[in-house]
Simulated scan of single mutants.
Amino acid sequence: MKFLAIGFVFGMIFISLDSCFSFQIPLTTRQSFPARSVSVTGANRQKDDKIHRSTLPRLPNNIYARSAPHDVLYHRKSTELYSHCASSIVPVVWVLTSVLGGASGTPFVVKSTQTWYTTIPLPSFTPPNRIFAPVWTVLYALMGIASWRVRQTIISMQSASGNPILSFLQYNIIPFSFIHYIMNISWAPIFFGLKRLRMGHVLNVLLLVTLIPIIGIYFSIDVWSGILLLPYLLWLGLATRLSSEVCKLNPTEVKLGYWYNNAKLQDQIWKLRKEAGKRVGFES
């Protein structure tokens, strides 16, 4: 759990920096010279470079513009290699951070599905517990890819939409998506950890309501990014319907407190049974 938390924190820091700075390194503007027909080597080359340096302007950090074609070619190749490595690493970090953040709620889910969650009445269409982990892992990965693609497209956008409101939303969609993501990973601690079923359902509704415009803006920026979020929309719709039915089957007892519901009752019963088992020596 500590490893997941540390990885998630470092990943979010990386994504924040990546959203502010581009990893593409522009080539330094160089003065071009006509190719020479005679190969220059050794002492002649040093003399030739000295003559050129005396006539060339200095670039920042006292670097002279060089006329040697192979120097320019080497710089271009090294820059392209760095940009290629960066463009390969960045999306992986976005995806891993998204998945690690989603996995932060796993301990609450695992503990609940092994105790009180199995004892409360659930809707007939409740999916098996074993499919939740792989489904959410895939969905978080798709969310990371979609956000990265949108971020890349925003960086390369030449002009914004003619609509000022749409332009504002397009250029600020990554922070909005981040807020939605924080709401998403907060659901498991609220629903399973605190056993506040109604609050979890309200949060599901807010997630569904905010996801629809986010997908629309993603489509306006990059079509494939919007398509990648469609499975998440479908699953979130199912989760919202499921949480609604769970609240109906496990109503809140107002007399015992606004947040007291069957989930809390079953959790207390489970703890009492476990404590009783320890007292009689059935459990350690």
Rank of each mutant, 00 (worst) to 15 (best):
P251I: 11
S167A: 10
H180Q: 02
R279W: 11
A103D: 02
E283I: 13
I185H: 13
Y181Q: 07
L100S: 01
L17D: 11
S32N: 14
G105Q: 07
T79Y: 06
P128K: 13
S88I: 07
L233F: 10
A141W: 08
F14D: 09
S22V: 05
L233V: 02
N129I: 15
A239T: 13
F10Q: 10
Y74D: 09
Q268L: 11
N172D: 04
L142W: 03
I15G: 02
G42C: 06
S87K: 07
K248Y: 10
V9N: 07
Y232R: 00
V246E: 13
A141E: 12
K274A: 10
T113V: 15
T106P: 06
L207Y: 01
S19H: 08
L230V: 13
L256G: 04
I51L: 06
I227R: 03
P123L: 14
L17T: 08
R45S: 12
S177Q: 02
G216E: 10
S161Y: 02
R30P: 05
L96N: 09
V138G: 09
T252S: 15
P128Y: 13
I89V: 08
S112T: 06
A276K: 14
Q268K: 14
P189D: 01
D49W: 00
K2M: 12
F3I: 09
V202L: 09
S124C: 15
G144H: 07
F108R: 03
P127T: 06
E80G: 08
Q24P: 01
V223R: 05
E253Q: 09
T79Q: 09
V135H: 01
D71Q: 02
R149G: 07
D48W: 00
N129V: 15
H52K: 00
S167P: 00
W94E: 03
L100V: 06
L265Y: 11
S244N: 14
V150D: 00
V95Q: 03
A146F: 04
L242W: 09
G7M: 09
N250F: 10
Y82R: 06
A160Y: 12
F168V: 05
P34Y: 14
W116C: 02
